[in-house]
Design a protein around this nucleic acid. Structure first.
Lengths: 204, 204
DNA sequence: GCCTCATTCATACGTTCGTTTTAATCGATC
DNA sequence: GATCGATTAAAACGAACGTATGAATGAGGC
């Protein structure tokens, strides 16, 4: 019984493999093999493969949502009318938490998020819970308050754009340079998105 | 022999199903069934499932790349020093071509592009040819010329961000409004991205 | 009318997959 | 140290998959 916690080992292995090869491209056998567990361990601990997926997703998403929520609380306690830049920082920042240079888990988690957001498979599409929805609602409301002249549909479009940018790590088409240092990506994203969210409404 | 062209029918069916359920989530049987063709038709016309995928990807990507290239030619013929907005329009615009409201193919193609850009599976990752690379190189060079004060790594990051935003249709988290009218999404994206690309460099 | 060649068809093969089942094992409790 | 609940192990099942094969089909050229 050398393994400390089979359940956790399974979650780690699954997160790695899902990010690397996608949900459908990862077999239970590959997961249990990497986790040093028996084939039946997934069925025992999680019930099925998709329930394991949901557990993995929850483990990735929850701390991000919590940080987004806490960040907004902190922001509103400091000032009643936060700037667009403040909101962007509070919303997008947590996506880059724990992505220190040299640490591969950050990049892997980023890939995982991209996979979650963009995978067309049915199993990937039901990852939001009440908590996530509530936090997103709050941010939508705050952005609407900070940019009252922006029509709602265009605001929604821009928020979708934010989500997309914060999760691009996977598209390494232009990533010909050295691995991005420390939290440079985070600050670049905030610059990028603050400018984008601050743009005047598109004229009709 | 009522079907006009089995090969085309297969491409259409495959494009639809790949966008809907992903590559791995789509069986050859589902494709041939939807195309009204025999199970062996894929093997006969394309050789294998992944070769069919590559044919589908090529058919989606090629007109976009061509339009991007032609747009840049037209732009440079008009003015030697295009603005950031001009470059954004020429680069991002073609991604939205043929996405008229009410036409489902546009949204489906968008989903297809997202799937291509973000799918972690190995088969999806080798879709760029020499033509695509050349066009992207030209745009990188032009953006660098238009924003000479921007450090190269941050410029690369922003171009990745552009790619991400132009392909977000799938993330319908905030798409609670009616389907986006005509080419509104295209103009919103240009506004969004022009502001983002015009932002001053992030300070160190 | 027949041959030819491209295409379509029905079918089968071997593999891999997720899941289930049944037995074995372990550690803690009394 | 026997018992019990929780976990792990080994094996098997049926289904679905990609691919390959060989026969059937049908139009166009001679």
């Amino acid at each position: 019984m050398p393994s400390p916690d089979t359940r956790t080992q399974l979650l780690d292995a699954a997160e790695h493999l899902f990010a690397e090869h996608g949900f459908r491209g990862t077999s239970i056998r590959a997961i249990t093999s990497r986790a040093g567990a028996n084939l039946a361990a997934v069925g025992y601990h999680f019930g099925s493969k998709v329930e394991l997926l949901h557990a993995v997703i929850r483990r990735v998403i929850e701390p991000i949502t919590a940080a987004q929520s806490a960040g907004l609380d902190r922001l509103l306690a400091r000032t009643p009318d936060p700037t667009v830049g403040d909101l962007v920082e509070a919303f997008a920042g947590p996506m880059f938490d724990g992505m220190l240079a040299g640490d591969e888990t950050g990049a892997r988690r980023s890939r995982m998020i991209v996979a979650i957001l963009s995978d067309p498979a049915e199993e990937m599409r039901s990852w939001t819970g009440a908590t996530e929805d509530a936090v997103h609602e709050r941010y939508v409301a705050e952005f609407a308050r900070a940019r009252p002249e922006l029509p709602a549909p265009e605001l929604f479009f821009r928020i979708r754009g934010m989500l997309a940018v914060t999760a691009v790590d996977r598209v390494d088409l232009y990533n010909r340079s050295a691995p991005v240092a420390e939290d440079a990506a985070r600050r670049w994203a905030v610059t990028f998105l603050t400018a984008a969210m601050s743009a005047p409404p598109t004229e009709a």
